[in-house]
Amino acid sequence: MSSHRVLVVEDDLEIRESVMEILEEHGYEPVGAENGLEALDRLREPGPPPCLIMLDLMLPRMDGKEFRQEQLRHPELAHIPVVVVSAFRDATQLVQGMHVAEVLRKPFKPEQLIDVARRYCPPVAPSA
């Protein structure tokens, strides 16, 4: 069975909650994590893996690059696409070698966020 779960790894609570709210409004099942270590814990929880990981680069305890390196070490997790969400102007250069699907620049519009989710996750049935 395909998952509509999206892991949102963002240390800024306001941004994380906003992203999760937008995803939820469009039928996705967002799961939040404040840093890379917490994100790894979320990935190891029972249930279907997320269809997408939205990853900030600047995180406490374990940053986005360290998280991605650890994710790629585990075959059962390595296949999950990662979209880096960053305000860095040079984010595209910063993610070189991280094998990410794409970069979404902050600030972004809700439509851009949903377009990204739709590219990597199965279609969500419209709510009645």
Rank of each mutant, 00 (worst) to 15 (best):
V19Q: 00
D12R: 11
C51P: 08
P30S: 08
L57R: 03
E38F: 10
L59P: 10
M62F: 08
P75A: 07
L55I: 07
D11I: 06
V19M: 01
M58N: 14
K65C: 12
C51Y: 05
I80C: 04
E38K: 15
Q69K: 13
P50F: 06
R16K: 03
E34F: 09
V31Y: 06
D41R: 15
E34H: 12
P48T: 11
Y28C: 05
P49R: 09
L55W: 07
L55G: 07
R61I: 13
R68M: 10
L23Q: 00
R68L: 13
R16Q: 01
G27N: 06
A33W: 03
D11V: 07
N35H: 15
F67A: 03
P49S: 09
L59H: 11
L72V: 11
E21G: 11
H79R: 13
L55K: 02
V31F: 06
L59F: 11
L43T: 02
V82Q: 00
E21M: 15
F67D: 04
D56P: 04
I15G: 03
I80F: 04
E38V: 15
I22E: 04
I22A: 06
V82K: 03
E38Y: 09
G27T: 09
P48G: 13
K65V: 14
A39G: 03
L13G: 13
H79I: 08
M54K: 03
I15Y: 02
E66S: 14
L43R: 01
F67Q: 03
G36Q: 07
N35T: 05
P46K: 12
